[in-house]
Design a protein around this nucleic acid. Structure first.
Length: 202
DNA sequence: TTCAGGATGTACT
DNA sequence: GTACATCCTGAAC
């Protein structure tokens, strides 16, 4: 398998956000492998982005991990019940990250259905299957990600991203038709709400 | 198929 | 005390 390496993350955040689309997010959980294909991402860049938790290099205990070297996981808790997963990008000291907003489940379906709804795949309604991983909170739930996993190194074994996993029959994706748009859910951030830093594929 | 409203904890002012 | 990078349910269309 070809795990994405440190130099991949050590680049412009928007570039990383685009290139993550179609890649495979892998979570090692209780001796199972949970895999989802990334379908939607957003870029957050601290030095210039009011919507970013680390706007203008503002550092707090919560967002400290965004200042770490690229290739780490920034997971935070929001709205009283949900977690969001970000991948830290750009050189150490530049607080920026890519928010993962959507995945398509690929492996470990049964485990993910349990984590998400407490049911087996066969018991899910069509509506539940359709909305399995199309949101940042949902994807964290399906992959059993909480603040406990905040700060994980994406070059480790517990959580990482691959562009292909031949062992599982997952090949590199071909050219993608990438849709670009404004980011979701950040209406109170002045001009930053209009930045077209949301990327998605079908 | 879309929509409004409620649930809920943490970080930060 | 307030704001928040959200999700689910149930009711109406």
């Amino acid at each position: 398998m070809s795990k994405l390496n440190r130099p991949f993350y050590n680049r412009d955040t928007c570039t990383v956000a685009r290139e993550l689309l179609g890649c495979y997010l892998v979570r090692s959980w209780q001796s199972s492998l949970l895999v989802g294909q990334i379908t939607e991402t957003e870029a957050y860049i601290g030095r210039m982005d009011r919507a970013c938790h680390a706007y203008q290099y503002h550092k707090t205990p919560r967002n400290a991990i965004m200042f770490a070297p690229p290739g780490h996981a920034y997971i935070y808790f929001t709205y009283g019940m949900h977690h969001c997963l970000n991948l830290v990008t750009e050189p150490e000291g530049e607080p920026s990250a890519v928010l993962l907003r959507g995945i398509r489940p690929v492996c470990g379906l049964e485990e993910m259905a349990r984590l998400r709804y407490g049911r087996s795949v066969g018991e899910l309604t069509a509506y539940q299957k359709k909305n399995f991983g199309n949101g940042p909170g949902k994807l964290c739930r399906a992959l059993a990600l909480t603040r406990e996993q905040n700060g994980l190194d994406l070059l480790g074994e517990e959580l990482y991203v691959c562009d292909a996993i031949p062992e599982l029959g997952l090949l590199p994706h071909g050219p993608l038709e990438i849709k670009v748009g404004p980011r979701v859910g950040i209406d109170n951030s002045g001009e930053a709400k209009d930045y077209p830093w949301n990327y998605s594929v079908e």
